[in-house]
Design a protein around this nucleic acid. Structure first.
Length: 862
RNA sequence: GCCGGAGUGGCGAAAUUGGUAUACGCACCAGACUCAAAAUCUGGCGAGGUCACACUCAUGUCGGUUCGAGUCCGACCUCCGGCACCA
């Protein structure tokens, strides 16, 4: 330790020492309790940005804290290294995606090391390496065996800019999640994973993680799965034996149905129209709708409702009424049954449709008047049918014009009518989900090849497990056109059929990279396993993840996939739990002012408001940069980058450094931390109290991951230490009333506080903490290897004297001093005796006195 | 449109979950050191008011509950996210 704080030198020093001593390598079969701290693995785009720094600083603070507390901590990192940007670089600049990716990884790894993040580098993995993606393929085949991976032709989301398919999750909002381009619809032959089989579990198991995940993420997970309870009903077509099934959440409105409306893609359509004179018109209409959908410029824009009558009739099984069967553009084939019963009076869309085509609007639900709701439901408006409806009434209410169900409340009718339908055999209660199967085919080169072979004799044949991995060829021709570059690599495509050994062709689509990231944190546990994705016994020692940290941009995509994958692995017997992540923290964005504007936006190259972590490290040191990003705002909040803020962080570190440097010899020589002295001065007792209060506070805040207030506590402790330091100086000549023992006590208290500060600083700024720890005479080993986290002594932390606020009629008027064990009675008496209080209550009648023990007194007067 | 979340000094933010509002930091002001500046150290810093106290007002707005409300309830305003015809 030198007199001056030079971050560069000490950061390099400790980074080397940590590496030499393998300080952060986690080992299995350790008797200590485990802790799995995980940050979302980065895409190797080339450079770290401040968002990464924030992510890793949060995770590392937690890893350090747990390590210092004596946990066996697993803190790994890897690379989500398959994906579009590498291929774009190949298309634009002719570089090989693999070289580009490897170079980026090398550079970013260097940046991470310069930040001094305590990763276990021995477990580093990268998705683009065959020893990793082999297991993506293995999982795919396991799903294929179980019918969970399948191929079908369907309308998919197509990003025209990247020439590839996107999953529903990746085209949420109608735009590509990566480049923001509006997606188009295309008909393509695609591979899907049956995530819908797990829809119910994806909703239900939220119970298990409810307490550990942010509410907003859980909400989005629930919304995405879109569980909806309702009923299905079969309407018999009048002139055939066909049944038209509809799904509704409002079976109670069925007496108000005035049409059945099918999606243009409904499979029954052709049969219903067979021989009809309207056939040609309806088909033409369906084609037009489809064309409009494919050509839509803004996919989120709603189109005007359009429809056409098919001439067919369907019979309402509840009242035998014949309803016209229509086809319309607003009914979606891939939700519910692809057909709806149109109830214009009680559904806004149906209302709009009915108005346009002058279909009858029949009210069957009336608002309920509240006083009568309980005893005997009654229509508040009387339900006059002749009344014109100006808009749909979509609330629950009382059934009217509904035969035997009239007078019932919607809630009851929904249940009873579904039971009735089931008893009569034409329907029943049902649950539908909004979530669709996960389309994983990508017409790209830089991904894991889908291990399927097409044979003219045997059809679709899975690659035998023993032949994995299906290795990506070294290169291909990158044109950016809408076909996988793999299709142009003859050596790759041409193969032999595993079954009949005749010539066959490989699947040329690759997998969505979200497959790679769905299970990577299990691989960290056993990263070099060559015979399985991982050994379940080893994984059991580390998982589930105790704390996961990442941006909320993955609130739906990655997190729903990885939950799905975990459930599948559970079904394979690889893991024994339902949910992979116990606690999740979604960090806020790091923003910076966009030059020339008042706007704060996420740092980005295109906006020119990026801040380079390397420059920050060079100018202020990694310790200061990390400290600042943790201190500046709560982890979930947006973090606005302010240059003077990081200067403040350096200032704090320098102040700590200076005080440690100044006192290190005396503290080394003294009874540092042993608290041998029995006689403490008032000032020393005050310092010890503060020290132990801060230990308690920082420890608590760590459990809540309130890192910003944590740093504030460290600053407070330093402020108190600084005051004490002045005192120690003045007392060098042992003034009156001060014994040698007391001076020694002062030094003890001081040493305890300093050591506490150094240890508690380590999770935020580890290099300087190691250096100061060494400077304080701990030559025996790394701070990172110690179980050094202090434990608060409640006795010492307790106030010796309380300052109790006294209110008169709820307004603060005075403060009184009292011992901590003061009784309520005493407090009351003290408050009433207080001069200021007496002046105020003089001439008034004291109505009552409220005493909150140890807290406050409120005198109520009239 | 529907569903969430949030509004506290000039700024980032605290507040033991109903009990001293504004901790900690940034910025700013003053002083010390310096020939001077930077750095550093010390002090000040919600608004009004006062020589200084006292006092009054202040947690988006308006009401309510309570001895007591940033915190609970109701209505409204503003901002930020999410979803997009989901039957």
């Amino acid at each position: 330790m030198n007199e001056k704080y030079f971050p560069e030198a000490i950061e390099k020093k400790w980074q080397q020492r940590w590496e030499q001593q393998r300080a952060f390598e986690a080992r299995e079969n350790d008797p200590r309790p485990k802790f799995y701290a995980l940050e979302m693995l980065p895409y190797p785009s080339g450079y770290l940005h401040m968002g990464h720094v924030r992510n890793y600083a949060i995770g590392d603070a937690l890893a350090w804290y747990k390590r210092l507390q004596g946990f066996n901590v697993l803190h790994p990192i890897g690379w989500d290294s398959f994906g579009q940007p590498a291929e774009q670089a190949a298309i634009k600049r002719g570089v090989n995606p693999r070289d580009w990716t490897e170079e980026n990884i090398a550079h970013m790894r260097g940046q991470m090391k310069r930040l001094g993040i305590s990763y276990d580098w021995s477990r580093e993995i990268a998705a683009h390496r065959p020893d990793y993606y082999k297991w993506d393929q293995w999982f795919f085949l396991k799903m294929f065996e179980r019918g969970l991976a399948y191929k079908k032709t369907s309308q998919v989301n197509w990003c025209p800019k990247e020439s590839t398919v996107l999953s529903n999750e990746q085209s949420s909002g109608g735009v590509c999640w990566r480049c923001g381009t509006a997606v188009e619809k295309r008909d393509l032959d695609q591979w899907f994973l049956r995530i819908t089989d797990y829809a119910e579990q994806l909703v239900k198991d939220i119970d298990e993680i409810e307490s550990g995940w942010p509410e907003k993420v859980l909400k989005r997970q629930r919304d995405w799965v879109g569980r909806s309870e309702g009923a299905y009903i079969d309407f018999a077509e009048k002139n055939s034996d066909k049944k038209i099934r509809v799904f509704t959440t409002r079976i109670d409105t069925i007496f108000g149905a005035t049409a059945i409306v099918l999606s243009t893609e409904h499979p029954l359509l052709a049969e219903l129209l067979a021989g009809s004179t309207l056939q040609a018109d309806v088909f033409r209409f369906a084609e037009k709708v489809k064309a409009a959908r494919l050509a839509k410029q803004d996919p989120t824009a709603e189109e005007a409702k359009k429809g056409i009558n098919t001439g067919a009739l369907a019979i309402n099984p509840f009242n035998g009424e014949s309803l016209p069967v229509w086809v319309a553009n607003y009914v979606l084939m891939d939700y519910g049954a692809g057909a709806v019963m149109s109830v214009p009076a009680h559904d806004e869309r149906d209302f709009e449709f009915a108005q346009k085509y002058t279909l009858p609007i029949r009210q069957v639900i009336a608002p309920v008047s509240h006083d009568q709701a309980r005893a005997e439901p009654m229509a508040a408006t009387g339900g006059d049918q002749s009344q014109m409806m100006h808009q749909a009434f979509t609330d629950y209410g009382v059934l009217i014009n509904s035969g035997q169900w009239g007078g019932k409340l919607s809630e009851d009718a929904i249940r009873e009518m579904a039971e009735y339908a089931e008893a009569k055999g034409f329907g029943g209660a049902a649950v539908t989900y909004r979530i669709r199967d996960w389309g994983i085919s990508r017409q790209r080169f830089w991904g894991a090849p889908i291990p399927i072979i097409y044979c003219d004799n045997c059809g679709m044949v899975p690659v035998p497990m023993a032949d994995l991995p299906v290795v990506l060829p070294a290169t291909a021709e990158f044109t950016g056109a809408g076909q996988s570059p793999l299709a142009g690599v003859a050596e790759f495509v041409n193969t032999t059929c595993p079954k009949c050994k005749r010539a066959a062709r490989r699947e040329t689509d690759t997998m969505d990279t979200f497959v790679d990231s769905s299970w990577y944190f299990f691989r960290y546990c056993d990263p070099r396993n060559e015979t399985a994705p991982f050994d379940p016994e080893i994984v059991k020692q580390w998982t589930p993840v105790d704390q996961y940290i990442g941006g909320d941009s993955h609130a739906v995509m990655h997190l729903i996939y990885t939950r799905f994958w975990t459930k599948f692995m559970r079904d394979l017997g690889l893991v024994s739990f339902n949910e992979p992540v116990k606690r999740l923290l979604t960090q806020g964005m790091v923003t910076n002012r966009v030059e020339g504007t008042e706007e704060w936006k996420a740092m980005s190259k295109s906006l020119g408001n990026g801040v380079d972590p390397d420059e920050m490290i060079e100018a202020f040191g990694a310790d200061a940069a990390r400290l600042f990003v943790l201190f500046a705002a709560p982890a979930e909040n947006e973090l606005r980058w302010i240059e003077t803020g990081i200067e403040g962080a350096v200032r704090f570190l320098r102040r700590v450094w200076t005080i440690v440097w100044r006192w290190r010899d005396q503290l080394k020589a003294g009874s540092l931390g042993s608290q041998r002295s029995q006689d403490f001065s008032d000032a020393a007792r005050r310092l010890r109290r503060k020290t132990h209060q801060m230990i308690a506070r920082v420890t608590e805040d760590f459990e809540k991951l309130d890192l910003n207030t944590n740093v504030a506590a460290l600053m407070e402790l330093l402020n108190v230490l600084t005051d004490m330091q002045v005192r120690l100086d003045l007392n060098r000549d042992l003034p009156m009333g001060m014994t040698q023992e007391m001076l020694r006590g002062d030094l003890d208290a001081f040493g305890e506080a300093i050591e506490t500060l150094v240890v508690m600083l380590a999770p935020f700024s580890p290099h300087i903490a190691e250096e100061m720890w060494e400077g304080l005479g701990h030559a025996d080993g790394l701070l990172s290897g110690q179980r050094a986290w202090p434990v608060a002594d409640p006795e010492l932390a307790r106030q010796e004297e309380l300052e109790i606020p006294v209110q008169v009629n709820g307004k603060l008027r005075s403060r009184i001093l009292a011992a901590p064990d003061v009784t309520e009675e005493q407090l009351r008496a003290l408050a009433l005796a207080d001069e200021k209080v007496r002046a105020l209550i003089d001439g008034h009648q004291v109505v009552k006195v409220i005493v909150v023990p140890q807290r406050l007194v409120n005198v109520v007067v009239k």
